[in-house]
Design a protein around this nucleic acid. Structure first.
Lengths: 337, 337
DNA sequence: AGCGCTGAAGACAGCGCTGTCATTCTAACC
DNA sequence: GGTTAGAATGACAGCGCTGTCTTCAGCGCT
């Protein structure tokens, strides 16, 4: 079957191509009977509008871009699945673009890419959404975008916000409730604003429950399993090691558990360990890891819906929804003996 | 800066738009001096050809699709990075399309998708590349495609082949060399041809080294961590448990190790465990897992290069390169005491 | 000098759609 | 019944490029 064009459909339905166009694009002002006649013709010919022609004429590509720079495969695929769900629903296609947020030419790269590939808009994810130069470049180039980012009062940018602060507070509260007072904290990569929020949440919980914060119990990690190992050694080799360690992500928490195993420390009997993100690894280590589950997929889907809505001209939508995360208590945390 | 069109460039360079088109598309028959004049104008105006116009006129979209149905985030992102590397080099864009290979309408879905999004060609990955109906539908619709798939003599389809058989043979040989004779094998999902090849490799190695194959030492897994656990219980609760277990993938091997830990079996002292794939988890469990590393990224990149080459009209390329995988010996396998 | 020939460049017609504006129809009102 | 606002439809010009065909200059040959 040769691919049908809009003319074929118009001919079969006995209307002008413009009317077919109206029906296909769900525009108003078409009589119900006409609409059905056209739809039948579309089905009969298995007509698919030509995306290129449509883009060229309409100056819209029905393509959105997903920009990311994140080494976690799970995070990336969760993002993609969420965005794809929204795209499919709205008949948009997705272009993915991993990039290096530290690259000096990142702004030109991003703007150039959007121009080149004719994206209608882009989705920005951490740490790109935390990189102010990129955000500014996008704004300046008037490229529609929506960020996924920690909650933030400043900036007018549209974003789907995470509640890292609150979740870290809740996790710390959980540890305190178990009787822990010496709670080590492994902070995350300094370029990720979400990581800073997690540290704040931890600190605020200590304050809220009158636990004496100790500077040396907070060590700087860099999100990787290996950095988790290094930080764990630093914390556990002290003369007075903490009774619990809260790592800013699961990979580092897994690193902590690896080191604990090697040092012969039982978990959770001798050490409670908590992570953040609820990646698959949380359930694949022993004991299963207490962590925080952030609905990445839902956030990505929401962000994509908002972006596409804006591209369609909507503006009255909620400009910064916060998607709540959830504590997942497993077996790596226990009451202080 | 308003976006420049080909007319602007032609005007500035003092040539016709067709000549600009020739230069931009690296076509022959343009004098060197003219070419340079045009290129200067392109740079001066920061000209980017309009992808939609180009597609419409040239009946090419410079878009390729990556089809997959795989729950492993690492696998998927490796694929993507490989394909993207080739795309970037060749100025193609990538559309990703996760799908459900068991869905009954999968063939129509795939063909429809390609038509809809105007993809020039697609990349097929396991288990889609193992699904004959999909392959047939693509061939019938005359959609150019390249598969990533286990080596296979039949079919004329262009593919980048894996050497699962050989790698599994090598791993089994490694275990035999360590003195193991009772080697349990956890096979993978039956719909993945690669998994069948791994089982064959195991069997052939037993035969080659005169180890008595035992039917009950081969149990059926389904690629997941949980199925690895179940299979491990089945193998380890026998009165004469194997001294080594070779799982068809790392997740299942991790499941085996989890069960062994729970049963108080030391690894590798009491049990050698081997996996396949070299996913990050292999290094994040204790002890680090002996496994097989298959260069997914390189395979994907090669496949994309071949596909793009074909789209460009090349045909004399190697039609079925085999990318060799590599044994990674870590600490989960040891000499039989 | 006249011939054909090749390489370099341009003219021109669309690709299949959408935006704009003109036109026709419908129905509700006086 | 005549008007008229508004809904429904159509005519038409291009969006920015590429494919095809044409033109023309320059060259070697007889």
């Amino acid at each position: 079957m040769p691919k049908a064009t809009i003319d074929d459909v118009a001919g079969l339905a006995g209307v002008s191509i413009k009317t077919v166009s109206r029906v296909v694009n769900a525009e108003p002002n078409v009589r119900q009977a006409t609409r059905e006649r056209v739809l039948n013709a579309v089905r009969a010919l298995n007509y698919r509008p030509n995306a290129s022609a449509r883009s060229l004429a309409g100056d819209r590509s029905y393509l959105i871009g997903l920009l990311y720079d994140n080494p976690s495969a799970n995070y990336v695929t969760d993002l993609q699945y969420g965005v794809l769900a929204a795209c499919r629903e709205q008949h948009y296609d997705l272009l993915i673009h991993p990039c290096n947020y530290k690259h000096s030419g990142i702004c030109e790269e991003v703007v150039g890419l959007v121009a080149q590939s004719k994206m209608d808009g882009v989705l920005l994810t951490p740490p790109l959404s935390d990189t102010e130069t990129v955000v500014a470049a996008l704004q300046q180039a008037r490229i529609p975008f929506v960020s996924i980012a920690p909650r933030q009062s400043d900036e007018g940018a549209v974003c789907v916000a995470t509640d890292d602060h609150q979740a870290a507070f809740a996790m710390t509260e959980h540890l305190i409730a178990l009787g822990h007072r010496e709670i080590g904290f492994i902070s995350g990569h300094p370029d990720h604003r979400a990581m800073a929020r997690r540290l704040e949440g931890y600190r605020e919980a200590l304050r809220a429950f009158d636990v004496q914060p100790q500077q040396h119990l907070v060590v700087q990690g860099y999100n990787s399993f290996e950095s988790g190992e290094a930080c764990a050694r630093q914390l556990l080799l002290r003369k007075e090691p903490p009774s619990a360690i809260f790592a800013s992500n699961d990979d580092m928490a897994a690193g902590v558990m690896m080191v604990a195993h090697q040092m012969g420390i039982a978990i959770p009997a001798g050490l409670s360990v908590a992570g953040f993100d609820d990646t698959p690894i949380a359930r694949q280590i022993w004991p299963p890891l207490t962590t925080v589950q952030q609905p990445i997929k839902a956030m990505a889907e929401t962000a994509a819906q908002i972006l596409i809505g804006r591209l369609r001209g909507q503006t009255e939508i909620d400009t910064a929804p916060v998607i709540p995360s959830q504590l997942v208590i497993r077996q790596s945390t226990a009451v202080l003996p």
